[in-house]
Design a protein around this nucleic acid. Structure first.
Lengths: 193, 193
DNA sequence: CTACTTCTGAGTCAACTTGTCTCATAGGAT
DNA sequence: ATCCTATGAGACAAGTTGACTCAGAAGTAG
């Protein structure tokens, strides 16, 4: 039972992680050295080494602080839920914290196996959630799909990702989201246009 | 007139850039230190410093070696040309060299102004080329657009980018590309289905 | 072929960073 | 009040960085 967490440990970890998140957002993952994080957190350098012997773990934990709870708990009608989820995703993706974590994840995944695994889990989770939600809509008769449901993640999230990382100054209009929705298939008219 | 390029300079630059590209592909931009590049290129460390005083320039030049000549010189019918361009783009994006440059570009653009500018130029060029090609198709009556042509880049390239950086093990089937094409608008029947 | 200019690579050097270790001390449990 | 443990300060060797020097090789011009 790890039931008695020393308050000092809790405090140190929190301060370091907050500093790491700030540095990640402001200057990118390369700034997450033990020294800089320790200085920013107002903490001894040795303390950072104690809790995170390898800088990679520090980056991982800092990224984990920004979670991505998208496409969870679908509601009916699925179309309205999906529209709202895509809207939220588009808006969140351009937030500095989220963008920093996203690009660091995509970038790090190319060369660091630990991050590759994280990325794969995220991608699989998103694809799976979307597939399930859409499958339920198909089952209930709300949606007549226009193609493989396994492609839905790429089709729906892809354009939002493109805007966030390649054209960050162009916001995603609601009309674009509507277009993405229509592309998934034919939706039964539910009055929400 | 810089008409007399010293062969020694040419040779050194070529060797260093080749080494830099290899390192970028194999280990990412963080590996592009003067020391490692010099060692890999079989060149003196001072030589690398002479030509690229700042490591950032070295990264930029190494990335420039992998160009992205997509969506150039549209032909008619535009639909067939676009399908072929998307096919090539999807296939190229997963190549190690291209993927390394792409993710480094997206990642670096978040914090390094020089790379931000590169990314913006690339994004603007792709959007512009696509917009022009589609506009000509509209003008010739080949395409009846289903929405803003300025969104075409995000709609067409976004899903391919998503697959490349988030689901690199899932190839892009031709059926997905066909789906992307149909989403741009209604194409006049040209017999190529 | 000779004399010149320029680039190269090896090396030195100080400043800095990294990872490890020690130790006095303060915060927190009992 | 007493013990325990995490902390922060600092020391330390090893490695890296960026700047510099210099002899010699490569290339050019006569």
């Amino acid at each position: 039972m790890a039931d008695a967490p020393d308050p000092r440990v809790t405090r140190s970890r929190a301060a370091v992680l907050a500093a790491a998140r700030d540095l990640l957002r402001e200057e990118g993952p390369a700034a997450l050295t033990h020294q800089r994080v320790a200085a920013r957190a107002g903490v001894g350098r040795a303390t950072v080494y104690r809790h995170w012997p390898q800088p990679e773990q520090l980056l991982t934990d800092a990224m984990a602080g920004v979670s991505m709870p998208f496409f969870l708990d679908p509601t009916t009608p699925v179309r309205a839920w999906l529209r709202q989820q895509l809207r939220v995703l588009a808006d969140e993706l351009v937030l500095p914290d989220v963008l920093a974590v996203t690009t660091s994840l995509l970038h790090g995944a190319v060369w660091q196996p630990a991050i590759t695994e994280r990325r794969d889990r995220l991608a699989a989770a998103m694809a799976d959630r979307l597939r399930r939600a859409l499958a339920s809509a198909v089952h209930s008769g709300e949606l007549r799909p226009a193609g493989d449901l396994d492609d839905a993640a790429a089709l729906l999230i892809g354009p939002l990702l493109y805007r966030a990382v390649l054209e960050p100054r162009r916001p995603v209009p609601d009309t674009l989201i509507a277009r993405l929705l229509d592309q998934v298939g034919a939706w039964a008219d539910d009055g929400t246009s």
